[in-house]
């Protein structure tokens, strides 16, 4: 027991609560700066509390490493982490994401052309989207080998159904008046697709793309638990857990968190550019 650390942890918790209470009840609470300030302070306070508890109670590093130890592991092994990132994220998740999204988009276009196909595919796709698809990871690793191809394949299957379902829904999002207008313009199928229905479908498509970002990373990481070359985030996590080097595991999780939220953020940014006209993108209220 090191009381100084414990007292420090308690003080940090009280201090952040006090500061956040003050800001949240002040007049400037709706300013963008306080919307950013409050969660940031909360996060920092939690980290300080974590550090204080681990140091003060003397929690062994094999159970819960302190944030400082995790950061030390992170900065000391950036080269390994970067290799793992490239292997898992760039080669596995990103390539699978692009292939899966393109495939889902094309299938959705075909399904949309036929009412029968759409009514058949939509329930099946919805059903598949709720299944534990990560389970196919061992099968695909068996088929495509240990390298990134099998991870990309898992990602393709995982992202396919959410994007398919959302795109099919989106292509139906125009109403009769708008389609009739295109008809009176004598627009061809492709004209009305590109000028009306695809733009109208974009909010739905991006919803699917955003859901799929997390799934892609999960698929790539979990597939590595079933066999991978000696690099990759999932490989590193499972082997370092076996060696009880938890600071390295947490560093890898930090990388996954950064990669996951950056990926999501980039897709959300593109969405804002593409669907600037949609009510949900309006700033202010």
């Amino acid at each position: 027991m090191n009381w100084n650390w414990l007292i420090g942890a308690g003080t940090a918790l009280v201090a952040i609560s006090y500061v956040n209470l003050q800001v949240a009840n002040s007049d400037g609470r709706d300013q963008p700066i306080s919307r950013l300030f409050v969660p940031t302070v909360f996060g920092i306070g939690l980290l300080l509390f974590w550090e204080g508890i681990v140091q003060g109670m003397g929690v062994p590093g094999v159970i819960l490493p302190a944030p400082s130890a995790i950061w030390a592991a992170f900065t000391a092994s950036t080269d390994i982490l970067w290799l793992d990132f490239v292997q898992t994220f760039v080669k596995g998740a990103l390539s699978g994401y692009i292939i899966g999204a393109a495939a889902a988009f094309l299938v959705a276009l075909v399904a949309d052309a036929s009412d029968f196909l759409r009514r058949g595919l939509l329930p099946v796709g919805n059903f598949m989207a709720a299944l534990p698809i990560v389970g196919i990871a061992p099968i695909l690793v068996m088929w495509f080998g240990f390298d990134w191809q099998s991870k990309a394949a898992v990602v393709v299957v995982m992202v396919f159904f959410p994007i398919l379902v959302n795109t099919v829904e989106g292509l139906r999002a125009t109403d009769r008046m708008q389609r009739d207008l295109m008809q009176t313009y004598a627009a061809s199928y492709w004209q009305s697709l590109f000028k009306l229905r695809l733009p109208a479908a974009m909010p739905f498509i991006f919803n699917g793309l955003k859901i799929a970002t997390t799934l892609a990373l999960i698929g790539a990481i979990v597939a590595e638990f079933f066999g991978s070359p000696i690099r990759g985030m999932g490989f590193r996590i499972s082997t370092e857990v076996g060696r009880l080097a938890l600071d390295m595991v947490w560093a890898e999780i930090l990388v996954a968190a950064i990669a996951g939220s950056a990926f999501y953020g980039i897709v959300a940014l593109i969405e804002r550019r593409v669907t600037f006209w949609h009510p949900s993108q309006r700033r202010g209220r």
Binding site: N20, V23, A24, R29, S34, R35, V38, P39, V41, F42, G43, V134, T213, T214, L217, I218, I221, V222, M233, G234, I237, E252, I253, A256, A257, G260, S261, F263, Y264, G265
Partner: peptide, 18 residues
């Protein structure tokens, strides 16, 4: 103000890795 942004951000993180 403090927790909600984190709750939303946490959904973009591959939690399953832990």
């Amino acid at each position: 103000m403090a927790v909600m942004p984190w709750a939303i951000a946490s959904q973009t993180i591959p939690i399953l890795a832990v």
